[in-house]
Amino acid sequence: MTNRITELFNIKCPIIQAGMIWASGWKLASAVSNAGGLGIIGAGSMYPIVLREHIQKCKKATDKPFGVNVPMLYPDLEEIMNIIVEEGVKIVFTSAGNPKTWTPYFKEKGITVVHVVSSVKFALKAQEAGVDAIVAEGFEAGGHNGRDETTTLTLIPMVKEQIKIPLIAAGGIATGRAMLATMVLGADAVQIGSRFVASDEASSHIKFKEAVVAAKEGDTQLTLKELAPVRLIKNKFYNDVQELYRKAPSIDELKELLGRARAKKGMFEGDMDEGELEIGQIAGLIHDIKPAAEIVYDLISEFKKAQQECASY
Rank of each mutant, 00 (worst) to 15 (best):
K90F: 03
K57Q: 14
G259Q: 02
A215I: 06
K27R: 15
T152F: 01
L222Y: 03
W102R: 12
G97T: 11
E161G: 02
V70W: 02
E87C: 13
T6S: 08
G42Q: 14
F66E: 05
T6M: 06
F106N: 05
D219N: 11
T175A: 07
L277C: 07
G270Q: 07
P166R: 00
A126V: 05
K247I: 03
E128M: 03
L224C: 11
M46K: 12
M158G: 06
M158Q: 14
T175K: 06
R195F: 01
I173K: 00
Y297T: 15
N10S: 14
G259P: 01
G275S: 08
E137T: 08
E78D: 13
I111C: 11
E253H: 01
Q242S: 07
I40F: 15
V113G: 04
Q307Y: 11
Q242R: 05
I300R: 10
G44R: 10
A261L: 02
G284A: 14
V32C: 12
S250T: 10
V85K: 15
V241A: 01
A61E: 13
T103F: 09
V117T: 09
L257H: 01
V212L: 04
L224T: 07
A31T: 10
G176F: 03
I16F: 12
D76M: 04
A187F: 00
A43Y: 13
N82F: 12
D240I: 02
D200I: 06
L153W: 03
A31K: 06
A248Y: 08
E226G: 06
V241E: 01
A198E: 06
G110Q: 08
A311K: 15
S301N: 14
L73M: 04
V212F: 02
S312V: 15
A23V: 10
S24L: 10
A214N: 09
E140R: 03
E243T: 10
K107D: 05
P99H: 07
K247C: 03
Y245I: 08
G130N: 03
E79Q: 09
K109W: 12
A43T: 13
F303W: 06
L185I: 02
G259I: 02
L153Y: 04
D76I: 00
K12I: 06
V212I: 13
V85G: 15
M179V: 10
